[in-house]
């Protein structure tokens, strides 16, 4: 490493430091330019990293925006506990929103399927929450390496007044000059982690020692095998189909969402190191654990046009 006279390294900024700085820049830009921003907090590892970066971005101030969790009522119990503890520990405002009509209609992933459930309890709920509170910008933890349509999405992604995304008419985005101008009712989804990969996320969690929901680490958990996936029986609402048996298995999750829709993987990785090791030799991509992406191969683009994060 080249060290110059005043002790500065002449080397390029490392990958993680460059990503960290870029994310902080994006987060500050949103806070400075928008009237009423909010950070979508989904409790997963990406959200955790995003929140960690927000804490750094404004230190010694607190982030000047609340957190919003869209609760489908089907999240893992561990996620809800972790969510509430995190907000309390960091001293941040947390808004929890659930689609009241969805609840009234008893929408659930078992009777209505993943597609209807996701649309009403996630996409519609998110749109309702953003409209209700009048947020003009919402941070999301999505990464471009997750999925093909995300790979083309801007860091500041424009949404029309019905929260829709128009992939063919995106604003050009050059340098780090983000266009934050929106008319009344329109909004921006801001993605500070756009350029991070799954490996970057885990490396950062490890080097920064960021707390994570225990579900990422392997433990003995009750699961049933369904449609080739291991679904955890997280509470008594989970109906068993004929022939299904609940088994205790050493499992963990690569991605977290609604428990009936999130597949576990069999694993012994009960430390962060072991998780990273497992990921480095993994042969399946992380979103394959999500039922909602399987509907068809361009399904994410469709959902995003409708307003999904």
């Amino acid at each position: 490493m080249n060290v110059t006279a005043n002790g500065l390294t002449a080397q390029r900024l490392s990958n993680l430091r460059r990503l960290e700085a870029e994310s902080i820049h994006i987060i500050r830009e949103v806070a400075a330019e928008f009237r009423n921003p909010v950070m979508l907090y989904s409790i997963g590892k990406d959200s955790g990293v995003m929140l960690h970066l927000a804490m750094k971005a404004f230190y010694p101030s607190k982030p000047p925006f609340p957190l919003l969790h869209v609760d489908t009522t089907w999240k893992f119990r561990d996620m809800i506990t972790f969510r509430d503890e995190t907000a309390k520990r960091l001293g941040l405002d947390l808004i929890v929103y659930t689609n009241p009509e969805g609840v009234a209609q008893g929408i659930n992933p078992f009777d209505h399927g993943s597609s209807v459930h996701t649309h009403i309890m996630k996409t519609e709920a998110l749109k309702q929450a953003l409209t209700k509170y009048g947020f003009d910008a919402a941070f999301g933890g999505a990464r471009r390496d997750e999925e093909k349509s995300r790979a083309k999405e801007r860091v500041f992604s424009f949404r029309n007044s019905s929260h829709g995304w128009d992939p063919k008419n995106q604003r050009p985005e050059l340098w780090n000059l983000y266009n934050a101008r929106v008319a009344k009712g329109e909004s921006i989804r801001a993605f500070p982690l756009s350029n991070w990969t799954e490996l970057d996320i885990w490396q950062y969690i490890l080097t920064e020692n960021i707390p994570m929901v225990p579900l990422y680490k392997a433990a003995r958990r009750p699961v049933v095998e369904r449609d080739g996936m291991l679904i955890m029986v997280d509470d008594e609402r989970m109906p068993l189909l004929p022939g299904e048996v609940v088994q205790e298995k050493m499992v963990r999750f690569r991605t977290l969402g609604c428990y009936p829709l999130t597949g576990a993987i069999e694993s012994d990785a009960d430390t962060l190191q072991a998780i990273v090791k497992e990921m480095l030799i993994a042969r399946t991509s992380e979103r394959s654990g999500r039922l909602i992406d399987h509907d068809d191969s361009a399904s994410m683009e469709k959902k995003k046009r409708e307003g999904y994060f």
Binding site: L13, T207, Q273, V276
Partner: peptide
Amino acid sequence: VTEYILAQEDKDQ
């Protein structure tokens, strides 16, 4: 693994 990850700190972009 830890060593590998820490070594990533020096990886550039």
